[in-house]
Each structure stands twice: as structure tokens, then as C-alpha cells.
Design a protein around this nucleic acid. Sequence first.
RNA 1: GUCCGGAUAGUGUAGGGGACUAUCAUGAAGGCCUGUCGAGCCUCCGACCCGGGUUCGAAUCCCGGUCCGGGCGCCA
Length: 435
Amino acid sequence: MEFRRTHYTSHVTPEMNGQTVKLAGWVHEIRDLGGIMFLVLRDREGMAQITLFKKTIDPEVLKTAKALSRESVVLVEGEVKAEAKAPGGYELVPIKINLLNPAKSPLPMDTTGKVNAELDTRLDNRFMDVRRPRTQAVFHIRHHMLSAVREFLEQEGFIEITTPKVVATATEGGTALFPITYFDTEAFLNQSPQLFKQLMMSGGMDKVFEIGPIFRAEEHDTRRHLNEATSIDIEASFMDHEDVMVILENLIVYVYEKIAERAVPSLKTLGIELTIPKAPFRRLTYDEAIEVNNENSKEFLEWGDDLSTNAEKVIGKVIGEHYFIKDWPTEIKPYYTQPYEDEPKVTKAFDMMHPRMELSSGAQRVHDHDILRKRIQDQGLNPDGFEFYLKAFRYGIPPHSGWGLGAERLLMTMLDVDNIRDVVLFPRDRKRVSP
RNA sequence: GUCCGGAUAGUGUAGGGGACUAUCAUGAAGGCCUGUCGAGCCUCCGACCCGGGUUCGAAUCCCGGUCCGGGCGCCA
């Protein structure tokens, strides 16, 4: 049975009046008015109205149409008729309807937007949830986001790399890792490409980036955490933290611009009017951030404290747009961040914030082997486990800097989505490993 | 982990000791209707998370469990 389409619904225009086309997709809605019957066919790009005049239609076609259930997959061959009364300015008068796969009813959830479904129901039935234009729009935008990131970084001279997700050691300490069985040795799912992208600085690749999954075995349970997330990571040699901050803010602006330009229908579906942030972003020092918090919050922070969720919100509200917090206390940043030479208590690390939450963190890295080794030790880690990493620092590694940016957080803040699970097809959280 | 809140037809909900033969919408089944576009109208189908307890009587109150949502924590 024929199943190849000639057009997507959105590619058919009223000017094609009289032409025969084949549209393939899902039966979105059925409206039978008696003498006339309307089917709404939905595909990736939109919807098209199929109109059946019962007096003149081929009885075989009518019979097939009457037996259709919602969300069944069909191929409709028909004649395009320019029709002002039809949505999109055209309708299709069917010559043939091929039922390619019938859908059972009732459906596990509504796809038309008439009745809400809870996130849990939607995630359990993600295949069907993705048929909803709103969900579809989110993932079209996600595609444009990732594509714009690649484009921008490539223009900036970055080389895309992929690093292992199965690793031997708890590379960075701190966050909990997922242990896995790897033949007869112990291994883990990697929490970040950090160490590997730094190795490539020693490798002379100069500027690299990776877009890939990161895994954290933390038992967090919030709307902005996942146990499997997508990280956009860069590392660049002969650059300091200020240099990569500029790259980061320009990237954010670029991504917003490209989405505003390329994802117009999806943004419209979501009812979003994108406000494109302006670079340069405001730069607060850690000291200033603490001050802003202490002036505006009941919660008092002392120098050396990490910013609580509340502090992030308070400062975000005051600033009201993307901003950086830089010059953090060395103590609360990882061993690989480079302290200031003249003030070692402060490190060349930064976070990039959206008013709602942290999006990215980065730093200039320590590139001196002995200092790095000592700092690993000082943080209570065993340098022996880092030998594969430290080795690269003994044979010529340039000064370098980099950052990691949470792809989901970037998307959710851009689209003003409340729950991070909404911007991941199959989110992995504390309680969900399936589907 | 912890503190709140919740769990009612396929989906989303109302109802907080008796008026529950459980509300409404959507949906499914059947019917009417030639321009619908969240079509309309008529008929009809479909549910109180699990286990204990209190009570003459529990969807409703209590205890335990499971699951879900939100806040916080954890997350360099």
C-alpha cells in the first residue's frame, strides 16, 4: 500500500489549486456534519483539512474515512482546492485514503489541546505527547538551539570532539557517580567531559567543544535538575576566563537570534515573543553578589558561602537579565580552577546566570602540574587516580580556559518552561528510568 | 533526604461523614445535521490508589504503604 507523501501539509498552498498531492500523517480530528465530513490530517509541519462531500465522493473513500479513528496513520491522495473557508486557505478533496496503521481508542491522552494532561501522564506516553503541536514545537526549538550552538562555535574556530561517557575513576570528586559494570572492572558514567577536554589542550587542538550527556547520581528532586543532562562544553587554549566569558555571552545572544529567526512557527505555537539578550552581560564579582543578596534577603551570607537557591533567586530578581558572577572563593570551586596569582584566595572562576538559575560555570584552569597536583590533594582527592590527567600537564600544556553550559537550562529559561523535564524527550530523574 | 499538598471514568476535574444511583468537560459507542475549524444537538458507556481502622454509615475521618506534584537540601 502506497505510503510516500509528495508534500508536507505546510508546503501545499492555495496556488496549487487543481494539483494532485499525497499527504501522510495522523488523523488529528474528525468532524462529520452529515452531508459533509472534515478530517484534519496532522504531520510534522502542520495540519491540513481533508473535505469529503458525501454526495460526490467515491463510496470506497467515504467508507474508509468513516471507519477512521483519531491518531490513525493515513496517506491521503487528493486534489488541492483553494478554499478561503478552510484553515490554511486550501483543502484536499480525497481521491484515495490509505489507512496505514489504525490507532486504538480511547487514546492515552488528548492530542488536540482540549483536555490537559499532567506531566507524568505525558511522560508515560511521550510518543503521543510529542504529537501535540506544543511539545513538537519545544523539540523543534531544541534542534535549532543545538544547531546554532554548533554553527557559532565552528565559526569561532572550535573543533567538535566526543569523549568517553564510561570512565574508570571518580574524576572530579564532589558529585556522586553512577557505578556500572564494565567487564570485570569497576567503571562509572561520566559526570562531565572536563578532564578529557583539558587533555585536548595538551593535544594542541586549541579550541574544542562537545555537546553530550552528563550523568550525576545526586538524589536531587527539583524542577531544574536531571540525572542525565546535556552539557555544552568548550575548552580553549591561550585564553583566560574573561576571553571565554565573551565567547559564552556571544553564543547565548547568537542562539537567541537564530531561534527567533528560524523557529518562527514553533515560537508562535508556544506563544513566545523572544527577547534577545544583549551582550556584554553584567559582571558581578562574587563579593558584589553576596552584597546584593545581603541587602535584599533575610538570609545572610558570609564570604566563602556558596549561593543558595534563594540567593540565586534574590540576585536574579535584582539584576533581571543574564549576568556573570566571577572571582569566586577558591575554596568552593573545583581544584582545576586557577587562583589569582596576587590573591590566591580568589579564583578565576565564573558562573553565568539567568535570573531564574545558573546556566553555566567556567574558569581559567590550572596548567601547572605541581600546583594542580597539590590542589587535587588539598581537596581530599588522591592524585594517583588522576595520573592519566596529570601526565598531560608534564609535557607542555598551554594556559587554557573553558566552561560548561546546561543545554536544558538554556532552553527552559529561553522558553520560560517551568519544569526541565518538559525540554527533554525522555528525562531521567530520581524516579524515572522509563520510557 | 525533608517539609507541605495530592491520588476520583482513557484524559482533565467537582465533591471533605448520609442528599453519591458520584459533578462537569473531553473521550468512546449510536443517531441527526452540506462549511465545520475546541462544530452543535440527542441517547448511551466509563472512575473513588492499596491495606487496615473509626462509625449505624467512609470517596470524605484516622493509621500504614505506594505513587505524583511543589518547596528546601544535595548538586565543584
